[in-house]
Design a protein around this nucleic acid. Structure first.
Lengths: 343, 343
DNA sequence: ATTTATCGTGCATACGTATGCAAATTGAAA
DNA sequence: TTTCAATTTGCATACGTATGCACGATAAAT
């Protein structure tokens, strides 16, 4: 296992030029003559030389590494986003360094420290909140942060979300139009802006049509908690006839409980609506009506915001909300007169 | 956005000691007196100093970065593995740099080049094959490689898989015991060792009990291709009464087609068995009988192999096969006398 | 008190690259 | 041919850290 690293100096020697010449050949935009470039590239090719990104970063101050902090990967929304983020950044010559963190403990601070040790050029947090102290540290280190799919009041923090309030409202309107009278909500984690906004929008939407929430339980974005909530809510005789679940991941658990434990028909007995539109929601086994978070556009906005900060320097802080459509499928009763535009 | 990096020199100045002293305080196992450590740590604390991992790597030759090359993240098996790998490596002070790659084109070579540019200490490939040239380059660079969930003949490559051949055999025995006579296989991609081994084991298992495969189509590990295969196979009047699908991800698509397009009962009309045991397989909507790939143990083996190479230097090449149990659930007919140990 | 061993510290250098500056080369214009 | 500008090249240094070496301090042993 010969550990033979080829350096620019060896290439220079072989090509009979200076080390700086080699460096310039591999630095886009530097001034080099064609024949010099040819000589160097030939030597580099023969020796198998490639510039050391880490050494380069020491000089340039850019590592071309983006730190991604993420809590869950079992909710399909996040691997999907990770894949898209990674592809988008890869196209710009950046790569993602992954940091898993549990949302409940305060390991976030520790992990963030490690993150900064790697001199990342930027940070994306997916479904993770930032403490004030952390935000300050990142600001002091000059590392831009974008919150993906989570909002926070701090004026220093960029964020990209769907329009969660409006999304909740749309769902309320849809369920009301469907003639549902007794409506439940198994909410997203109340410790998250997404969870709170969806709930607030949903309540507002119901209020607009003279309805109010019959029962509301915090599902914490966890399958088992949501499942238990479903049992609690729908075991009663005078159970609700509709439920909006704070994200698809929980909605699947809720549908499983309704259909296989409580032997209820969806949507005959209960209409179920989720939030996210993960790929699984479109599979016939669930065929879940849900509000789509346009992950493509969210990723796009995240990447362009982050690269803007990194490559152009200080920018305006972005608080981007992207509107998403309600994907009407088979898990909720279709209101009279609504076009059946099932997808 | 003040870009103020604190260096060991500034800490040294503040603490009234040399830069080397600061370095030693932050280098585990170095020789420092308690009072020196105290002074330095105090100064570091006040300035918010943290060692620059990249600069350190230039000296030590270790980046504490592991490159992960992965093709799919829509098959739940991989995000699950990614999460576990990341957690395990994080516990050892390593982190994962993600590289997405499509399996069909030859972007793998390009991506691998970028990978090595980052001076990664090791590489894990998940469901991705290595070309000979690549293997040589990694060997030359002294970077150990572990193939996760894929095998390859090259004697230089470590690999961790489940016992795919034996797994295929177990499934054959199970379906045969269930009295199935006409058995189909929608195989994993024939370009992958996992796909080939599972199919070979399955065929061998059938042969042992005097059966043979009725029909076999390569599903390429893709949902849509598997779905089309299911349509082709099960539309006929004399359709098979059982199918082994090369992984769970495809098996879900197959079940969807069987139940919702062809209106067949599973397992009444057709028994379906998958491979992987991703979390979704246990959800009641699918309740899929499947051969479990013990991802915990596979991750453990992967990490310890990799760290062995990195921290102890050259080792024996490991070709690890981990045996997994058949998870008996509701998607396949239960043979008489078999304990119903549904999980 | 003297010798010897042990430990802690500072000095200097190295890791692999990028870049300001000045020298050298090229080419065009006169 | 000469002059001048434009371009290309090499030299030297810097990035932030780790570590071999030699020296000084301290403790232990005689």
């Amino acid at each position: 296992m010969a550990n033979e690293k080829v350096t620019s100096i060896e290439v220079a020697k072989k090509a009979g030029v200076s080390q700086s010449a080699v460096s310039r050949v591999f630095t886009p935009g530097a001034s080099v003559s064609p024949k010099m470039a040819e000589k160097v590239l030939k030597a580099a090719e023969e020796l198998g030389y490639r510039p050391n990104v880490l050494a380069r970063s020491l000089i340039t101050g850019r590592s071309r590494i983006i730190g991604l902090v993420v809590a869950y990967l079992d909710n399909q929304f996040y691997p999907d986003a990770l894949e898209k983020l990674s592809n988008a950044l890869q196209a710009h010559g950046y790569h993602i360094l992954v940091f898993m963190v549990s949302n409940d403990d305060d390991g976030i601070d520790k992990v963030m420290g490690e993150l900064l040790d790697y001199q990342v050029d930027g940070i994306i947090t997916a479904s993770v909140a930032m403490s004030n102290a952390l935000t300050s540290r990142c600001a002091a280190a000059g590392v831009p942060v974008v919150l993906f799919n989570r909002g926070q009041d701090d004026v220093r923090l960029n964020q990209v979300t769907s329009d969660n309030f409006e999304g909740g409202r749309k769902i309320a309107a849809f369920l009301a139009a469907g003639g549902h009278k007794k409506i439940a909500h198994i909410a997203g984690w109340s410790g998250s802006s997404t969870g709170r906004d969806r709930e607030a929008g949903f309540r507002a939407g119901l209020r607009e049509v003279g309805l109010e929430l019959s029962v509301c339980i915090d599902g914490m974005y966890k399958r088992d908690i949501a499942a238990q909530a479903a049992r609690d809510i729908f075991s009663a005789k005078d159970r609700p006839d509709a439920v909006f679940v704070g994200n698809d991941h929980m909605a699947f658990a809720v549908m499983d409980v309704l259909r296989f434990e409580l032997k209820l028909d969806v949507p005959g007995d209960v209409s179920v609506v989720g939030y996210d539109d993960v790929p699984l929601a479109a599979w016939p086994a669930y065929d879940l009506t849900t509000l789509r978070q346009p992950s493509n556009r969210m990723v796009e906005a995240t990447v362009s915001t982050l690269l803007g900060w990194i490559e152009e320097g200080s920018q305006d802080v972005q608080k981007i909300k992207i509107d998403g459509p309600l994907m009407i499928r088979g898990s909720a009763r279709l209101p009279e007169g609504w076009p059946d535009e099932r997808l």
